[in-house]
Design a protein around this nucleic acid. Sequence first.
DNA 1: GGATTTGATTGGTAGTACCAACTAGATTAG
DNA 2: CTAATCTAGTTGGTACTACCAATCAAATCC
Lengths: 140, 140
Amino acid sequence: MTEPGPDEVMDHLVQVSFTVMALLSRAAAAHDLSLTQLRALAILRDRTPKMAELADYLGLDRSSVTGLIDRAVKRGLVRREASEDDGRAVRVGLTDQAHRLAGELGAEIATLLAPLTHDLSPAERNRLGVLLGRMLPPER
Amino acid sequence: MTEPGPDEVMDHLVQVSFTVMALLSRAAAAHDLSLTQLRALAILRDRTPKMAELADYLGLDRSSVTGLIDRAVKRGLVRREASEDDGRAVRVGLTDQAHRLAGELGAEIATLLAPLTHDLSPAERNRLGVLLGRMLPPER
DNA sequence: GGATTTGATTGGTAGTACCAACTAGATTAG
DNA sequence: CTAATCTAGTTGGTACTACCAATCAAATCC
């Protein structure tokens, strides 16, 4: 019973992913951020990449990132700094305000996502974590 | 070892969700569809809802769905039909062409997502499916 | 040192999604 | 049974997202 066929596993994965994204969007929207801005915030939490690197992380065109960062700068979330080694390159980093915001958001997201695994026992949650971990690319 | 803390489980869940979404976007883009259009396509595969119902399924404002369906109609993917019981309401359904497209896309998506669980044994995949299934709302 | 490559931005286009305002059909109340 | 209200959907306006092609300046190659 309740044995999911191979397609059903993928279907569940897609369903859950959409649910997660909806929750993330909601958390972001509560602070007037788009999902992309949320991602950028998360990435910049522990990095100070050049624009091109950020674009790669986000999987976006460079020109898209320019606008994204423009708006973030206007909101006082991001700072542009000239790169030391390369006169063309620009490094982007979070402002203190953004670091605080990222912290809050992290907590809020954890709270929002928690109900998802409400029906799972601690052991099951653990197993889920392990399985999901093995679906991610090595390194990171 | 490799025992994920509670936050790490959520983190993995978010990471995997982003990966899934990126793959879905890619599959959709290959057919010049947005992620939202892909979702709509999936929803309309086995339903012929009124606009408002579709908006609820998608979690979008009604006015957003109007434009979405406008563009889909223009592409010959969707048909608008007057509702029998309500003169104001509009039912939307896929054209034959869209049904075919949805079939193709389903197969392509399965292929794209398959590598994700490449490192999991069949038994593990099964367990994953069960766990994910329990994270979805009952019914549907 | 001049040609080419690279990092980032600009301009233009199309799609997404929202809100507020509106129209037309349905429902309710007096 | 008509008038007031409500509901379904669209329209218009705004802001954001994301892309491509073109541009500018700094860096690298030959």
